[in-house]
Simulated assay, not measured.
Amino acid sequence: MSPAYFGLVMATGIVSLAGFMLGYTSLAFALFYLNIGQYSVLMVLYGVRAVRHPRRFFGDMIEHLIGPGYFTVVAATGILASQFLLLGGDTSISLALWGLEILLWLGLTYTIFTAFTIKQDKPSLDRGINGGWLLAVVATQALSVTSALLAARLGQPYRLELNLLALSTWLWGGMLYIWMMSLIFYRYVFFRFSPGDLAPPYWINMGAMAISTLAGARLILNAPDAPFLTSLLPFLKGFTVFYWATGTWWIPMLLLLGVWRHLYKRFPLEYDPLYWGMVFPLGMYAAATFQMDEAMAFGFLAWLPRGFFFIAAAAWVITYFGMLRRLLRGLLPARDVKHG
Rank of each mutant, 00 (worst) to 15 (best):
A288V: 10
V241H: 05
W260K: 15
F308C: 09
L233R: 08
A295C: 11
V317E: 01
G258K: 09
M278P: 01
M323E: 04
W303N: 01
M284P: 11
V317R: 04
F235D: 01
F310C: 11
R261S: 02
A313Y: 14
T319K: 11
M292I: 02
G299S: 01
Q291N: 08
M284I: 13
M292V: 00
T240P: 03
A302C: 00
P234I: 02
R306F: 13
L282V: 09
R266W: 13
F298L: 07
S231P: 01
F267G: 05
M284L: 13
P305L: 08
P234L: 00
M292H: 06
R266Y: 03
K237A: 03
A302K: 09
V241A: 04
R261Y: 09
R266Q: 12
F310H: 14
P268C: 11
G258F: 13
A287K: 15
G307E: 00
K265E: 15
P268A: 12
A245Y: 11
G247V: 00
V241E: 08
L255M: 15
L254T: 12
L324G: 06
G277I: 07
K265S: 13
Y271R: 10
M278K: 05
W250R: 05
Y320K: 01
F280G: 06
A297H: 14
F298N: 05
F280A: 04
L282Y: 06
L324Q: 03
I251F: 11
G283C: 11
D272V: 01
G238A: 01
R326Q: 10
A295L: 08
G322P: 00
P234G: 06
R329Q: 12
L324D: 00
W244T: 14
W244E: 09
H262W: 07
G299C: 02
V241G: 01
R266P: 12
L328K: 06
P281C: 05
M292G: 03
G277S: 14
R306L: 10
L274T: 15
W244C: 09
G238E: 00
Y275E: 01
I318W: 08
W303T: 10
L328P: 00
F309K: 14
I311N: 04
F267D: 13
L269Y: 04
L282F: 03
F321A: 10
P305A: 02
R306Y: 08
T240Q: 07
G322A: 05
E294I: 01
F309A: 09
V241I: 13
A315C: 11
L328V: 12
E294V: 07
V279R: 06
G307S: 15
F235N: 06
F242S: 03
S231Q: 07
G277W: 07
L233W: 04
A313G: 06
P273T: 02
P234V: 02
M278L: 14
Y264Q: 15
P252M: 12
F321H: 09
G283N: 13
Y243C: 13
L328G: 04
P273Q: 06
R325K: 05
G277F: 04
A245V: 09
L331M: 10
L233D: 02
R261I: 13
A315E: 10
F290R: 10
G330F: 07
